[in-house]
Nucleic acid binder design. Sequence first.
RNA 1: GGUCCGUUGGUGAAGCGGUUUAACACACAUGCCUUUCACGCAUGCACUCACGGGUUCAAAUCCCGUACGGACUACCA
Length: 548
Amino acid sequence: MTREEYADLILPNVKHTAAYYEQLYPERDLAEGAIVTRYAPSPTGFVHIGALYSAFIGSKMAQQTNGVFFLRIEDTDQKRSIDDGVNKIIDDLIKFDINFDEGVTKDGDKGAYGPYTQSQRKDIYQAFAKKLIIEDKAYPCFCSESQNKAEREVQEKNKERLGYYGKWAKCRHLSMEEVVQKISNGEKYIIRLKSPGDFNKRFTFKDCIKGKAELPENDEDFPIIKSDGLPTYHFAHAIDDHLMRSTHIIRGDEWYPSVPKHTQLFVMLGFKVPKYAHISPLLKEDNGTRRKISKRKDPEAAISFYHEKGIPNQAIMLYLETVANSNFEMWLEQNKDKDPEEFILDFKKMPTGGTMFDYDKLINISKNYISRLKASEVYDLALVHAQTYDKELEELLEKYKDYSIKIFNIERNQKKPRKDIAYFGDVKNQIWYMYDELFNPPVYEWQKIQDKNEIKLILNTYINEYYDNNDDKDTWFQKMKTLANKLGYAGEMKDYKENPDNYKGNITDISMVLRVALTSKSMTPDLYDIMQLLGPERMKKRMEMSLQ
RNA sequence: GGUCCGUUGGUGAAGCGGUUUAACACACAUGCCUUUCACGCAUGCACUCACGGGUUCAAAUCCCGUACGGACUACCA
């Protein structure tokens, strides 16, 4: 029996050879320094903030080097894949402007290196596994999972290193005859790599982010093909990233310890070893310790959490970019005239340990981002948010479009714009009192002046003797001062500070009465602008309301 | 248990042997400005870089040990 026949028996019905596939996917014609990389999720549910973070880094690195960024779906674990998982991933990423040059799309594959879904590449993996068997670099293993588990327990008891290696690699030494016999008996098997590694030898490599590292060589005969015929992650990674001609493997650092395995695989297959960039995780504080943000425990792990809050996607991307390269913020500060896209992300500046996810910082970035938008843009985004999360607000925004834009415009058209909206879910909370439909204050936040008669006097004097909707701001303010003086309050703060006893109070007390009467709140944007928007009729009505 | 990796303030961090009396940003505090809030401005916030030892004329920066934290150690990715 030749080795080819032997391999055929182990992996029957493989349509093509490794050489065939090798030829099918030619090397890419790339510019100097171009990075070809991918985002390769398993379709197991929603996109996680950490996954978005790594997708962002991959897309940015490819884009800034004129490289290629593609989407590959890693669905070799059929138990974990969920229905429609792929579409969910694509939808989520589109929201954040993460675009792919090639790979899986909603309308099928795009690009010449597909299929991009691992479950559709079975023949490819098997072709290469077969090649390894022919070359005696891989072998079938008939050990059951329960046997492996039992072995591990023995290893644990003896305090030996865990795993399928050396003397524990029982099937490694099976003769061809024994293998043939077992297969004809119908025994189940997987394919394992025949590792040439030596645990006592050192393997050194350089990670783009973490720098130089030294690990023991891999000596485990780890599985490459599972009993269902599909590859393990390790094997699929080697085959796919070689055939898809990835130059850089950007992934979470939980993979860091497997680099010796992966490199070994590349070498044994005769592939060029790609560069690795292991991204440190986003952490969260939990009971005084730090742990990775978890899909199951933390609502903020889901991208949808931010969508619901109404934090603009761009703000999240800006935040993730400052996490990736902390000098990004300073660059932004120094390059205000430039497009943030022009910033060059650098692997070497990425954090090597875990990073605490800083929600306050995100909110701050979001607040600043929103403050720089035009009123009409704020309106559009607030409306989009309200459409899915607040029907009542949606109706008002639509009914009073121009009016609403004016509200958003208060203290916005200035060099230092107002920063009160931190996220769109907060909009209603900030401006509800500007809509009569919502104006039903549970409480009036009167400050210094509480006496109803005094309040009434102030309101009446103002509306009857001083108010004119056509006044410009300066005139308006002058009148406020005059009103204050007339009623025994200091119009100028200076005067009041010099002789507080000469006055009942000062102009701030008068302004506050008007503010609270009109809005019920003690903290609002500019009073003049509010009055302009409210107009005389509504002001009178609200003043009456406040006195009841 | 084994193998790695990491540890600078409340948070993210800059720094990578001597212009460090440790940048910058967030958060926090105080003051100023001000018709409120916000904005803005100013100031404060690590007597020191997990701890112990070593190398050096000189260490947050290099080396060793300890502690703590994390990852991996599946026919899951």
